[in-house]
Amino acid sequence: MNPNGQNAETRDGCAAKLDVCGLDLYYADFQALKNIDFRLARHEVAALIGPSGCGKSTFIRVLNRMNDLIPSCRVSGKVMLDGEDIYGAMDVTELRSRVGMVFQKPNPFAMSVFDNVAYGKRMRGLRDKRQLAEVVEVSLTKAALWDEVKDRLKKSALSLSGGQQQRLCIARSIAMQPEIILMDEPTSALDPIATGRIEELIGELKKDYSIIIVTHAMHQASRVSDRTAFFLLGELIEFGDTREVFTNPVDKRTEDYISGRFG
C-alpha cells in the first residue's frame, strides 16, 4: 500500500483501476468533453478542479454511466474498469454497484436510516436480516456515522442534519462494496465543520477504495487528493501529483486558475 509505488505503476500504464482513453462526449451537437485521457490507480484519490461548466461533473457521470439518463448524450472512446470496457458488454447495474456515487446535495431516500443503507443490497437480492444488519453497521461505521445514529436506525433519514445525511449517502454507497466512489462536490451544501468531517472521512476511505472527487474548493483538492486534474472547457488540461499541480503547474492556464486569475 505504498501510494508512491501505486502512482509509479499508474504512470507506467499498468495496474490502473480505471483507464479512460480518448473520451469524447456530446450533448446533441455540443461537445462537452474533448479527447480525455485519464487514469486512476487503486487506493488513489483524484480531485477534479476547474471552473463551472468545464465538464468535471459530466466526466464523472461517464464513469458510472449516469449520463445514460440524458437522451441527447453520446459518448465515444474507451473507459476501462479493470480492463473491462464499461460501455461494452458490462451490465450497467453491475457497473453502478462497482462504481458508487455521492451527489452534490445529500439525497437520502424518504425511508429509515437502516433502510437507506440496506436498500442497495436488498435490491440485489440480499434478504438475510443478520447479514443486512451487519452490512449496515459496517457501512455506517466506515462512514463515521454509526455512533451518532446507532440508537435511531429506525428514524427517518430525513431527520438527520445535512452533514449526517451526506455521510449516510456515503454509507449507502459503501454498503455496495464498490471499487471506486465518485463524489460530485460532496461538501458544497455543507457547513465548514461537516465539510471537515467528510474530508477526514475521505482520507480514511482511501484505504479501501479509489475515489474521484469533483470540487470547487482548491484547498479541498490540495487537502484530500493524491493527484489533481484541471479541466477547462471540456478539456483535461493537466493531471498530476496534487503538490506538483498546486506548486509548480506545467500549463499556464492551470497556474492562472489556481492563482485565482479567472474562474
Binding site: 458510472n64 449516469m66 439518463l69 447495474t93 453491475e94 457497473l95 453502478r96 454497484s97 462497482r98 458508487g100 456515487m101 451527489f103 446535495k105 439525497n107 437520502p108 431516500f109 424518504a110 436498500y119 442497495g120 435490491m123 440485489r124 449517502c169 449507502r172 454507497s173 455496495m176
Partner: peptide, 21 residues
Amino acid sequence: VSFREGSLSLGTTKSQTIFHV
C-alpha cells in the same frame, strides 16, 4: 430527480427504482 439518481447509482434497475423509491 436526485432520488432517482441516488437509487440508480446504487446499481438498481429502473423498475426497482420506481417501485421502491
